[in-house]
Design a protein around this nucleic acid. Sequence first.
DNA 1: ACCTGAACACCGTTCAAGT
DNA 2: ACCTGAACACCGTTCAAGT
Lengths: 198, 198
Amino acid sequence: MGCTLAYGTVPRTRLSKDDWTAMAMTALAEGGVAAVGIEPMAARLGTTKGSAYWHFPTREALLRATLERWEAAHTVAVIDLVEAERNPARRLRRLFASVLEPSEGHAVELALLASADDPLVGEALRRVAERRIAYLADQFGILGHPPEAARRRAVLSYSAYLGHAQLLRTAPGALPAARDERRSYLDESMRMLLGGVA
Amino acid sequence: MGCTLAYGTVPRTRLSKDDWTAMAMTALAEGGVAAVGIEPMAARLGTTKGSAYWHFPTREALLRATLERWEAAHTVAVIDLVEAERNPARRLRRLFASVLEPSEGHAVELALLASADDPLVGEALRRVAERRIAYLADQFGILGHPPEAARRRAVLSYSAYLGHAQLLRTAPGALPAARDERRSYLDESMRMLLGGVA
DNA sequence: ACCTGAACACCGTTCAAGT
DNA sequence: ACCTGAACACCGTTCAAGT
């Protein structure tokens, strides 16, 4: 039951699948998909690579399980954030605002967007994109737009979100920095994307 | 001067820096940053890894030179595309339209956006983002928007572009597929981003 | 000046052997 | 049931030696 080890590694007797996906989630948030390495993670867990290969057939399977875990937790988190607000326009504003003020909870998502060239990550991103665009289209529909127009606004809005996330990583200097600039930016973006309502 | 080799490798006596960056550009377009591997590229060039390490101190230096080459060529290509059109609104439409109809020339850029977590790629993307946002802000200024509003529209427009590129890779099914749907989407996006002009 | 060939390090993967 | 330890493959990097 846990002898003391050097270098702050976690002393454990036996590990579970969940211990490995939790470790992988941490690595993901810290350094993206490239940081999900079996050997480095085994070292941090105070075990050997064989442990990972007991629980998962390949590194890819471990990554897949980790992405599923993120997707499930994340879906719940967004619903919690948004569904509490009954007014549809304010619901959209809350969504958009949460994008402009990136929190702890966005760390893994930003890392995943950065690693979108990984096939498994790409699949996970596709699934959440489709869910979210459908949700946005619903909201625009509720606001009075006919279905096709609502869908177009949803796609444009989600594109803006994805691009914003990208700029946040690669060119934060290009984004509004001061709090009131961000508010103006949010206001103007909302006006452009919601504008011309029926 | 060039003996015939098996497996379609390019028979060469000696290689230059440019031969290596050209090879790397091809690899980039095909498989992103991960595909820029010294050993596989050496095999395709019919040489050994030592050749690369003669011309470049590290793989990173080769990648950096390749990105600089892309950046230079790419800047020229965009200017060629756009500056021929004198009318500023049509100039913007031409830009936006070129995004919706992805061509051969976009392959490397899409691959780079997919590999944005690489530090070198991130830097290159930051430089082009800042140039392009400044250019877009100029255009919105010419169309009559005051500077701060022009800047906000430029940031939102560029975000939409980046996000669109991301969807193109990870969720093409979510984007308008038919030609007339794309036209409607372009029209509506233009109206939203250009709308409310002074 | 440019390349070969052998070496080493790092990490994914396998597997026989341990507890 | 879960892990160790040694092995192998792949590729980045180095470098002494070749032309």
